[in-house]
């Protein structure tokens, strides 16, 4: 499988968007290198701001830019946006509604892997999902990141896009078309189980579906790349035609995709056995990315096992 970086893809998408829109600027918190932002700076040297290792100030500074008509993208580590600067994101992007976008690096344990807990962020979505008006996108691979950036650039208002380490497998291929706000069914071999997922763990879910198919079990794999606004109607429609529901996310099972699906089913009185796969409310440890996901119960075999 080809590996490409979601960080590089973000900058590529931003570069394309910025060529069309002179209001787009980049704000870093000494994260310029980590963001792989050199191509953007080469093209638009005046449109890069670095406030130093100061994520709260980065978010506030971006709001100042946005209030004067610019469209800033704050690009730094996911957890330092979603947790250290949570209040600035809430107040100065969410509440003001200013056009400030956030790109969170190293998200999930897959993205943070060897850095350990300080750089593995698996609570970002839970924290940010509670902020009114903040749109959230969790792309699965580099190609989808690029399309998602372009989609977000065409939308006014605050948003968060989740990025990884810079070494993610290409999953969706060149034909994939990202549609903001839409659940996408990627494979459908029957109605024994509905597998909802988002982010790079999609690769594992697709493998799990193959394992199930080989055993004669039909599965729908549906990607919820937009976490907010959540495509609840489509999620409910897929769940309604399946016997079981499984969610797979590289995030705490509290507050992210699994919670959103559970809320969707419960609010509609749609009773289905539900298993949420993800970080089971524990702090993980350092390790190689794939080995970590294996260790924390996200092997394709683990996913397949709870699907029957």
């Amino acid at each position: 499988m080809t590996m490409r970086g979601t960080r590089e893809a973000f900058i590529q998408g931003l570069l394309e968007a910025a060529q069309a829109d002179p209001a787009i600027v980049l704000v870093c918190a000494d994260s310029f290198k980590a963001a792989r932002a050199a191509p953007f700076a080469a093209a638009f040297p005046d449109r890069v701001f670095d406030v130093g290792i100061a994520e709260q100030a980065a978010a506030a500074f971006a709001a100042g830019l946005a209030s004067c008509g610019y469209k800033p993208y704050v690009n730094t580590y996911a957890g330092f946006i979603a947790m250290r600067a949570l209040e600035q994101v809430r107040l100065y992007a969410g509440y003001t509604g200013l056009d400030v976008k956030f790109a969170g690096l190293n998200a999930g344990i897959y993205g943070g892997e060897r850095e350990g807990v300080t750089h593995q962020f698996f609570e970002d979505l839970a924290a940010l999902r509670a902020i009114p008006g903040l749109e959230i996108v969790v792309p699965a691979d580099a190609g989808q990141v690029r399309q998602a950036v372009l989609a977000l650039a065409s939308r006014r208002g605050p948003a968060y896009i989740r990025l990884g380490s810079g070494r993610e497998p290409d999953i969706l291929g060149p034909e994939h078309r990202f549609e903001f706000g839409k659940l996408k069914v990627l494979s459908d071999t029957g109605t024994d189980v509905a597998l909802f997922t988002q982010g790079p763990v999609l690769a594992r879910v697709l493998k799990a579906a193959d394992l199930l198919t080989a055993r004669g079990i039909g599965a729908v794999v549906a990607e919820a790349a937009t976490l907010k606004p959540f495509d609840a109607e489509a999620v409910a429609a897929v769940a309604a035609r399946c016997a079981r529901v499984v969610t797979v996310e590289d995030h705490n099972i509290l507050g992210g995709l699994g919670s959103a699906v559970a809320e969707t089913l419960a609010e509609r009185g749609l009773a289905r056995p539900l298993v949420r796969i993800g970080i089971r409310d524990v702090f993980p440890q350092s390790g190689p990315a794939e080995a970590l996901l294996d260790h924390y119960g996200m092997r394709p075999e683990d996913i397949a096992a709870v699907s029957v």
């Binding site: 701001f49 406030v51 709260q56 100030a57 506030a60 500074f61 971006a62 709001a63 100042g64 830019l65 946005a66 209030s67 004067c68 008509g69 610019y70 800033p72 209040e87 600035q88 107040l91 100065y92 509440y95 003001t96």
Partner: peptide, 21 residues
């Protein structure tokens, strides 16, 4: 011109405005 009330934000937000100018 700017929402406030949570303390500490005048200078960093103001810096963003000044940079925008």
């Amino acid at each position: 011109d700017m929402t406030s009330g949570s303390l500490g934000h005048g200078i960093p937000v103001g810096a963003g405005m000044a940079a925008a100018a």
